[in-house]
Design a binder for these strands. Structure first.
Length: 716
RNA sequence: GCCGGCGUAGCUCAGUGGUAGAGCGAGGGUCUCAUAAUCCCUAGGCCGUGGGUUCGAUUCCCCCCGCCGGCACCA
C-alpha cells in the first residue's frame, strides 16, 4: 500500500476463493503465479497492487456451517484464516485482501447496482425465475424450467420459481464482440479467447443475479428480500478490494489510482464469467473495463484418475513443510513455486507429481543454483579472505572462456528473460536463467580457480574468475527472485549486499553502477538448498497429507463434488486424469461446469422428507431394451426402444459415453413411465432411465435387476 | 454434431521445406572449489497412419486413427 505516485501503477487479482473448504495445490498455483507477476512488476519499477481474497457467501457456506454447528461467520472466519496462513507460508506479496462478508464489499456491490440503474436503466429487470432444484441435495440444477436431473444424485429435479433480478446480458453481445475486436489481447491464451468469442457469438441469455431463497448474502438495495447471487457479488470484489463504494477519502483515491485492473488471472474454468459477464456488468455501470483476462490451465494429479479412496488431492502445506523440516531450512516454498512454474506451460494443463517436484528440487535448485552459490562463495571465502575480489576488467589477456562467459550475461539474455516474464512464459524464463547457471558451472570447470589459487603468479586470473562467477550469481539471483523469493534473498545476503533483492530493478541488472563492488565482505556461505532424499520426502509429505485428510478440514462443507471434477474426466476410460481447479471457488466451479447455479433452500437438506403420496406420483416400471442406437449429432444420447409390458416406448438417455448400444439390448432397466414427453435432438423421449452416477467422473450406471422380472412390473 | 488444439528419443517437451533437437532419467568417464555436487561422452527415435503438393516434408494440404479443450447435448 506504499503508494508512490511517481511510479506507474499495476493492478492484478486472483479470483476470490470459496470459503467452504481448504485450498489445494490448484488455488496455490493461481496465487503463486500472480505473486510472480506482482514481484516481477515491482522489480520493473511499478507500483503494484495485488488483490486476493475470499468468496464467503452462498448456500455451501450455509450448509457447511450448519453441519458443523457453527455460524456462517464463524465458518468463513475459520477457513479464511487457513487461506491467509497459506499465503503467508508461500510468501505471497498481496497488498490487498478482500472478503465478501465485509461491510465495505457489501456497500460496493450495492453501489455498483445503483450506478447501473442510473447509467443503464434497462440493464436490470425483475422477472420470474424458473429453474430446476433438487430437493435431496438442495441445489439448483438448472436455470431453465425444462426437466433436469440432479448432477449429484441423478434424481429428477423439482420445478421452482421465484421473482429474481436479472441482468440483460443479451443486450451486450455486440458491445462485447466489439471490445474483443478492439483488444486482441483481452483474453490470453489466444485459444481461450477464441472460445470466449464463439460463446458470445452463439448468443447470450439474460442471467439471474439475485435470489430470494438465500439468506447468507448481500441484500439487494431497497429490496432486502433478495440477496445478490454468486457472480455479481464475487466479481465486484475486484473493485471493492481497492476501495470502490467507500466514502472515505483514502479509499476513493486508491480506487481512482489502481482501477482498472491490468490483469485478472484465473483458472480456465471461470474464464467466461470474467471475459463475458464482468465486462458487461461494468459497461452497464459505466465503469472502466479491466485490461486483460489471463487464464491458466489445470494441474493434473500424478497422471492418474482421481479417486476418493486414493485421496490423491494435493495440498500445498505438506509439501512446503516437509521440505522445510527435512532440510532444516526454509526451502519448501521455493521448491513448490519453482516446480509449479518450471514444469508447466502457463495456460496449458500441467502435471503435478510429488516425485517430479523432488527431482526438480534436487537437480535444479540443490545441484544447480544452490551448489553454484555454495562453491563460488566458498572459494571467495577461502582464496580471497571473504572479500569480493577485483574484476580485473582493465587489462587482458582475456581467455576465450572468460569472454564467452561474460557474453552470456548480456543485454540479449536479459531481454529474452524479461520478455518471457512479460508474456507469462515462466517456464521459458526459468529455462533461460538456468542456462546461465549451467554456463557458470562450465566456466568454473574450464578456469579451475582452485588450481589458480595455488599459483601466486596467477592471482589476477583467479580474482577475475571469482569476480565473474560472483557477478553471475548476483545476476541470476535478481532474475530468479520473482520465482524463488526465499533463497534469492539468502544468497543476496551471503553476497554481502545491502537491502533486499526484492527492491532491485530487474530490468537494470546490467547497469554498471549496480555491479558487485570489489572489497565487499561476503557473509558465511551456507547451503541454500540442501539436497533431499526422495523416499523420505515422499513419506513425510504423504503422512502430512493424511493428517489433513483425517482432520476432516479438507472438505468442511463440500456436500457435493464440484462439477468440474466430473467434467475433467470427460467420460473417457482408463487414463483420464483429474484436475485441480486452480483459482476456483467451489461455487464458481459448479457454476462454470453445469451452467447451473447453487443456492440454498429455506429448509435444511437432510431433513427434507416427502410423503408416500409424493412418491406414489412417480410411476416406475421395469422395461426391457429392445433396441438401441446412437443419436446423430449428440455425443451422449442413445435412442432406446423399451418394452414396458403393455407398450414399447422410445426413450432417449444420456448414457452413450458409458454404454455401447449393442450391450444394452435385452437388458432390464427401470424407467420413469409417467414423465412428460420431451423432444431431444428432434427425437421424442417418453420416459427416463434410472441410473446412478459415480461421483468421480459422473458416469451413469444403469439400475437393473439380479432376478428375473417381467417387463411392465411396477417398481415401488 | 460444430469449432479449435495435440500426437517428435523411457519421461517432459522445443523445432525447421532439404538427410532430427533440449532438459530429466539411465550408462560410462573426469575434476575436487562445492550440497556423493560440477564438467565431458553416450540415446541411433517409422518426427501417429495413409495419401497429395514439391526436385525434396517431420515441417504445407487432405483423409483416417488416438488424445485433449470449448460449445451443443446428458428426462
Amino acid at each position: 500500500m506504499a503508494e508512490d505516485q511517481t511510479k506507474r501503477k499495476f493492478y492484478l487479482t486472483t479470483p476470490i476463493y470459496y470459503a467452504n473448504s481448504r485450498p489445494h495445490v490448484g488455488s496455490a498455483y493461481t496465487t503463486i503465479a500472480c505473486d510472480v507477476i506482482a514481484r516481477y512488476k515491482r522489480m520493473c519499477g511499478y507500483d503494484v497492487a495485488y488483490l486476493t481474497g475470499m468468496d464467503e457467501h452462498g448456500v455451501n457456506i450455509e450448509r457447511a456451517a450448519e453441519k458443523q454447528g457453527i455460524s456462517e461467520q464463524e465458518l468463513v472466519d475459520r477457513n479464511c484464516k487457513i487461506f491467509q496462513d497459506l499465503w503467508t507460508l508461500l510468501g505471497i506479496s498481496n497488498t490487498h485482501f478482500i472478503r465478501t462478508t465485509s461491510g465495505k464489499h457489501a456497500r460496493g456491490v450495492q453501489e455498483l447496482i445503483r450506478r447501473t440503474r442510473r447509467v443503464s436503466p434497462d440493464a436490470i429487470f425483475k422477472r420470474k425465475y424458473e429453474g430446476r432444484y433438487c430437493i435431496y441435495d438442495n441445489l439448483y440444477v438448472s436455470d431453465s424450467p425444462e426437466p433436469a436431473n440432479c448432477p449429484t444424485c441423478g434424481r429428477p429435479a423439482e420445478l421452482v420459481s421465484e421473482e429474481n433480478y436479472f441482468f440483460r446480458l443479451s443486450a451486450y453481445q455486440e458491445k462485447l464482440l466489439d471490445l474483443y475486436k478492439q483488444n486482441p489481447q483481452f483474453v490470453v491464451p489466444d485459444f481461450r479467447f477464441n472460445e470466449v468469442k464463439s460463446f458470445v457469438e452463439s448468443g447470450l441469455k439474460d442471467i439471474s443475479i439475485s435470489r430470494k431463497s438465500i439468506k447468507w448474502g448481500i441484500p439487494w438495495p431497497d429490496d432486502p428480500e433478495h440477496v445478490f447471487y454468486v457472480w455479481y457479488d464475487a466479481l465486484t470484489s475486484y473493485m471493492t478490494g481497492i476501495g470502490f463504494g467507500s466514502a472515505g477519502e483514502k479509499d476513493r483515491a486508491e480506487f481512482a489510482r489502481y482501477w482498472p485492473a491490468d490483469i485478472h488471472a484465473m483458472g480456465k474454468e471461470i474464464i467466461r464469467f470474467h471475459a463475458v459477464y464482468w465486462p458487461a456488468f461494468l459497461m452497464a455501470a459505466g465503469v472502466q473495463l479491466p485490461k486483460q483476462i489471463v487464464a491458466h490451465g489445470w494441474l493434473l494429479f500424478e497422471q492418474e484418475k482421481m479417486s476418493k479412496s486414493k485421496g490423491n488431492v494435493a495440498y500445498p502445506e505438506p509439501i512446503v513443510k516437509a521440505f522445510d523440516e527435512l532440510t532444516g531450512a526454509k526451502v519448501g516454498n521455493d521448491a513448490l513455486r519453482y516446480y509449479l512454474l518450471r514444469e508447466t506451460v502457463f495456460g496449458q494443463d500441467g502435471n503435478f507429481s510429488r516425485e517430479a517436484l523432488i527431482a526438480r528440487y534436487n537437480a535444479d535448485l540443490a545441484n544447480g543454483l544452490g551448489n553454484l552459490a555454495s562453491r563460488t562463495l566458498t572459494m571467495i571465502s577461502n582464496y580471497c579472505g571473504g572479500v569480493i575480489p577485483d574484476a580485473h576488467t582493465g587489462a587482458g589477456p582475456f581467455s576465450k572462456s572468460y569472454t564467452d562467459f561474460i557474453g552470456a550475461f548480456s543485454e540479449v539474455s536479459l531481454q529474452i528473460i524479461l520478455e518471457a516474464y512479460d508474456v507469462f512464459g515462466f517456464a521459458g524464463a526459468i529455462l533461460s536463467i538456468w542456462e546461465l547457471i549451467a554456463s557458470a558451472d562450465r566456466y568454473l570447470v574450464l578456469e579451475k580457480p582452485w588450481a589458480l589459487a595455488s599459483e601466486s603468479a596467477r592471482r589476477d586470473e583467479l580474482e577475475r574468475v571469482l569476480y565473474a562467477a560472483a557477478e553471475s550469481i548476483r545476476f541470476v539471483t535478481i532474475l530468479a527472485h520473482p520465482v524463488i523469493p526465499d533463497a534469492t534473498e539468502k544468497i543476496w545476503h551471503q553476497l554481502g549486499l545491502p537491502g533486499s533483492v526484492a527492491s532491485q530493478r530487474i530490468d537494470r541488472v546490467l547497469d554498471a553502477d549496480r555491479k558487485l563492488l570489489p572489497g565487499t565482505h561476503i557473509r558465511k556461505p551456507e547451503g541454500v538448498f540442501p539436497r533431499i532424499d526422495k523416499k523420505e520426502a515422499l513419506e513425510r509429505i504423504e503422512a502430512m497429507e493424511n493428517e489433513i485428510r483425517n482432520s476432516g478440514s479438507s472438505r468442511s462443507g463440500a456436500a457435493q463434488p464440484r462439477a468440474t471434477e466430473a467434467t475433467s474426466g470427460s467420460g473417457t476410460s482408463g487414463a483420464a486424469a483429474t484436475a485441480a481447479q486452480p483459482g476456483t471457488s467451489g461455487q464458481a466451479a459448479a457454476t462454470a461446469a453445469t451452467g447451473a447455479t447453487l443456492a440454498t433452500p429455506p429448509a435444511p437438506a437432510a431433513n427434507t422428507k416427502i410423503s408416500i403420496e409424493d412418491f406414489a406420483k412417480i410411476e416406475l416400471r421395469v422395461g426391457v431394451v429392445k433396441s438401441a442406437e446412437k443419436v446423430q449429432g449428440a455425443d451422449k444420447l442413445l435412442k432406446l426402444l423399451v418394452d414396458i409390458g403393455d407398450e414399447v416406448r422410445q426413450v432417449l438417455a444420456g448414457i452413450a459415453l458409458a454404454y455401447q448400444p449393442e450391450q444394452l439390448v435385452g437388458r432390464k432397466v427401470v424407467i420413469v413411465a409417467n414423465l412428460a414427453p420431451r423432444k431431444l435432438r428432434g427425437q421424442e423421449s417418453n420416459g427416463m432411465l434410472l441410473a446412478a452416477s459415480d461421483g468421480a467422473d459422473g458416469k451413469p450406471v444403469l439400475c437393473t435387476f439380479a432376478e428375473d422380472i417381467m417387463p411392465g412390473a411396477k417398481v415401488k
